[in-house]
Amino acid sequence: MLSQKTQYALKAVIALARATPDEVRMTSEIAEAQNIPKKFLEQILLDLKHHGIVVSRRGKTGGYMLRKSPDLITFGEILRIIEGPLAPLSCLSRTAYRRCDGCTDETSCEIRRVFARVAEANRAILDTTTIADCLAPQGQPQTTLSSIPG
Rank of each mutant, 00 (worst) to 15 (best):
A132L: 13
R67A: 15
S90H: 03
R80N: 05
V114G: 01
R67K: 13
E83S: 06
P85N: 05
R123F: 08
R112H: 02
G63F: 04
C109W: 02
S90M: 01
R67N: 14
G139N: 09
S69V: 01
Q140H: 14
A116T: 10
I78F: 08
F75S: 02
Q138D: 12
L92P: 00
L145Q: 06
Q142P: 00
R117Y: 01
G84H: 09
K60H: 15
I81Y: 08
S90C: 01
I78Y: 10
E106P: 05
A96V: 04
A119L: 00
R67S: 13
R67C: 09
L79T: 01
T143P: 07
G102Y: 03
T107W: 01
Q138M: 09
I78R: 08
E110H: 11
Y64G: 02
L126D: 10
D101W: 13
Q138I: 03
T107V: 05
E120Y: 10
G84A: 06
A121P: 05
T104N: 13
Q140D: 13
I81V: 14
P70Q: 06
Y64A: 03
P137K: 12
R99I: 04
A119N: 11
L135C: 08
D133H: 13
N122P: 00
L145M: 12
K68T: 11
R123M: 07
S90T: 07
Y97D: 03
C103T: 08
C100M: 12
P70T: 00
L92N: 00
L72D: 09
F115T: 03
D105N: 15
N122G: 08
R98A: 14
I82M: 11
E106L: 12
E106F: 05
S69A: 15
P137S: 12
L86F: 04
E120G: 05
I125R: 04
L86C: 04
G84T: 05
C91V: 03
G139F: 01
L89E: 02
S93Q: 02
L86Y: 05
P88C: 05
Q140V: 14
R99V: 07
T144K: 09
G102L: 01
D127W: 01
I73N: 04
G139D: 13
E83A: 06
E77T: 13
A136C: 11
T129C: 08
E77R: 13
T104Y: 09
G139L: 07
I131M: 15
G76N: 07
L72P: 00
S93D: 03
A121C: 09
K68I: 11
T143W: 11
E110L: 12
T95I: 14
P88N: 09
V114S: 04
E120R: 14
A132Y: 11
L72T: 15
P141M: 07
L66Q: 02
L72R: 15
I73H: 07
G62N: 10
L79D: 02
P85F: 00
L66C: 03
D127H: 02
C91E: 01
Q140M: 15
S90A: 06
A96R: 08
F115E: 02
P88S: 12
E120A: 14
E83G: 03
D105H: 04
M65Q: 14
A116V: 01
S69G: 09
C103W: 04
C134Y: 12
L92E: 00
T104H: 10
P137F: 05
E120D: 15
L79P: 00
T128R: 14
A136W: 10
F115V: 04
M65R: 15
G62Y: 10
Y64C: 04
Q142I: 11
P85D: 14
T144G: 06
C134P: 00
P70C: 05
A119P: 00
